[in-house]
Design a protein around this nucleic acid. Structure first.
Lengths: 135, 135
DNA sequence: TTTATACCCTACGTATTTGGTAGGGTAATT
DNA sequence: AATTACCCTACCAAATACGTAGGGTATAAA
C-alpha cells in the first residue's frame, strides 16, 4: 500500500498541475485546499524538489511549481521518490534492488512471478503521468 | 513490498507443494530446511490453516499439509491471508476496501490509475498458483 | 537597506507495524 | 499413560509512519 505521505504528494501535485504555467503556488494554499498538515507537506514538496520534479521560488510572491509539463512526469517517478520501491519483492526491484537471502533467483518460482507483476505494474505507472491526475 | 512474513509463507509452502499427497510435514522440518524461526513459522502456518489453505494432523506422525491441489490455490490468496491488501490504495481494494477521505472517487484521477494497476496485478496473481512456486 | 515573506533544515515525539521470543495448554497417536 | 506435535496468549524490541516544533536563510518589494 502507498503511504499516506505519498497520497498527500499526489493530492498536492494535483493542485500544481491545475496551476501549471501560472506561477508559484504557496505551500499554505496547497495545504489548506487539500487539508494536508502544513509542515508535513513542506517536507513532501521538498523531497519532490530535491528530485527535480518541482522547483521553488523564495520570498514574497514565491512558492512551488512544476518544472516540466505534467504529461512528461510518470506516476511511477513520484512513487519512487516519496514511497520507495514499487515492486513486491526487493529482488525484482529495478531501482531498489536487493538480493534475497537463502534463495537462488535462478530457481525461485516466486521471483519469476513477481517479475511479471512488476512489469505489469510499470506498464501502467510509467505510462500514466501527472496530467492523468486531473480528470 | 511483501512482508518478510509473507516471504516465509511462500518458502514454507514450497516445501509443502513438493511433498503434496505424501502425508503431513513437521513444522520443525520446514523451519530447518528453509531457515525460518520455528515459533514464527508456527504462527504463519496457523494463519494459513485458519484460512483453509492448509490442514494439520496432531500427535505423533502429525504435521501440516495442503488441503487442495497446489494448482488450485492462486498466489493472490496467500498474499491476502498473510499480508493483507494487494492494491496500492484502500479505495481500490477488492477485499479490504476503505473509502478515502476528502476525495471523490468519481473524479479522482489517481483512483482510476490504481484500479488499472490492481487489475494488472491480479491478472497475474490470480492466475499463478502454488504449483508455480516450484520450478 | 530594511523588512516581511516564504522556503529550508534539523530535531524530536508518538503510534503503529514488523519481526521475533517465551512458555505453557491441548489433542491425537502409540 | 506418555509422548508427540500442534494450538494459543502474551510479551518485547526495532523500525517505520505520521506528525509537530522552531528557528534559519534567501528573496524581493518597499
Amino acid at each position: 500500500m502507498l503511504s499516506k505521505k505519498t497520497q498527500y504528494a499526489f493530492r498536492a501535485l494535483e493542485v500544481l498541475v491545475k496551476k501549471y504555467d501560472q506561477g508559484p503556488v504557496l505551500i499554505s494554499e496547497i495545504a489548506k485546499k487539500k487539508k494536508i498538515p502544513l509542515k508535513f507537506l513542506e517536507n513532501i514538496l521538498l523531497q519532490l524538489k530535491n528530485d527535480g520534479v518541482l522547483a521553488s521560488k523564495k520570498g514574497k510572491g514565491g512558492g512551488y511549481f512544476l518544472v516540466h509539463n505534467p504529461s512528461k512526469i510518470p506516476v511511477a517517478r513520484i512513487i519512487r521518490v516519496v514511497d520507495g520501491p514499487i515492486a513486491m519483492l526487493p529482488c525484482v526491484s529495478l531501482y531498489f534492488y536487493e538480493k534475497c537471502k537463502n534463495c537462488d533467483e535462478k530457481h525461485c518460482g516466486l521471483h519469476e512471478i513477481m517479475i511479471d507483476v512488476r512489469d505489469a505494474q510499470l506498464a501502467i505507472l510509467e505510462k500514466k503521468t501527472l496530467a492523468d491526475l486531473v480528470v
